[in-house]
């Protein structure tokens, strides 16, 4: 009992009975999900099951039919203006295609949230932006480049740097390793794990990358049949009796990784 209440305190994001639909099509039906402080939650599901819909609903980019979403124990619908601002500062989002502002350089992209929320002198913003660029493993020359001049992997890193600009406590990553080569993807996974350890981040990661799931995710949640089918460790996944989950985690591509670990 004691451990569950301690666990309750550590819930960063709590989704209860969430229902989302478009027209007559119900995408998510009474979905429940908790994310705990300091963990990396991997979110998987077949294409079209609503992983992105869930993330966009949590980020309030989509409206919901019913259910509550509490982030840091604050219900956004009932929050005051000040609480909403404080909440926004604690969230960082890495969109699937980066969503960097194409008219701004990488450095300016990172400084957008700083400029908006903090009153820092330009010299310090420059220094912090360069620090973030270095933290995500980009070359210092990338700072003054425009997004159209970057490669796919560099765009992901730059977008991560922007997501981390305000040192958020909860980071949403939408397929962070898609489109990266295996070495780059592994580096990116390590980077996320390292940032989690040093900055104490909580990470919500939508991914299809089995390597990421096996190597960095503390917990995995599977979306299916309009709700969270199963959540738990990789062992729970392997033991779970569902044909999709079985073929996902015990398929040809997964088997070689399981054997290694």
């Amino acid at each position: 009992m004691d451990s569950t209440s301690a666990k309750q305190d550590n819930v960063v994001l709590s989704v209860k009975d969430l229902t989302v639909g478009f027209g007559s099509n119900i995408v998510l039906d009474k979905l429940n999900l908790d994310i705990y402080r300091g963990e990396i939650l991997g979110f998987v599901g077949a294409s079209g099951t609503g992983k992105s819909v869930l993330m966009r609903t949590v980020l309030r980019l989509l409206s919901r039919r019913s259910g509550t979403i509490r982030i840091f124990d604050t219900d956004f619908d009932k929050a005051t203006e000040a609480q909403r601002l404080a909440l926004d500062m604690k969230l960082g989002v890495l969109f699937q295609h980066g969503a960097l502002f194409s008219a701004l350089t990488v450095k300016e992209n990172i400084q957008v949230p700083m400029r908006e929320y903090l009153d820092l002198p330009q010299a310090m913003m420059d220094e912090l932006a360069r620090l973030k660029i270095e933290l995500v493993g980009l070359a210092p020359e990338a700072a003054d480049k425009f997004p159209s001049e970057l490669s796919g992997g560099m765009i992901k890193r730059a977008a991560l740097a922007r997501a981390l600009a305000l040192d958020p406590a909860l980071v949403f990553l939408d397929e962070p390793t898609s489109g990266l080569d295996p070495i780059g993807a592994a580096e990116f996974d390590e980077l996320i794990a390292k940032l989690r350890d040093t900055l104490g981040l909580t990470v919500y990661m939508v991914t299809h990358d089995l390597d990421s799931l096996f190597s960095v995710c503390d917990r995995i949640a599977v979306l299916g049949q309009k709700k969270v089918l199963v959540e738990g460790t990789i062992e729970d996944m392997l033991a779970f009796d569902d044909s999709w989950v079985q073929s996902y985690f015990r398929g040809k591509r997964a088997r070689s990784i399981v054997r290694k670990t």
């Binding site: 220094e127 360069r130 620090l131 270095e134 933290l135 070359a139 210092p140 020359e141 700072a143 003054d144 390292k194 350890d197 040093t198 900055l199 104490g200």
Partner: peptide, 16 residues
């Protein structure tokens, strides 16, 4: 983990 955080940062920023 604040000490770890400090030591995880680069000693100085690389100049372009």
């Amino acid at each position: 983990h604040y000490a770890d955080l400090i030591s995880a940062l680069p000693e100085k920023l690389a100049e372009p």
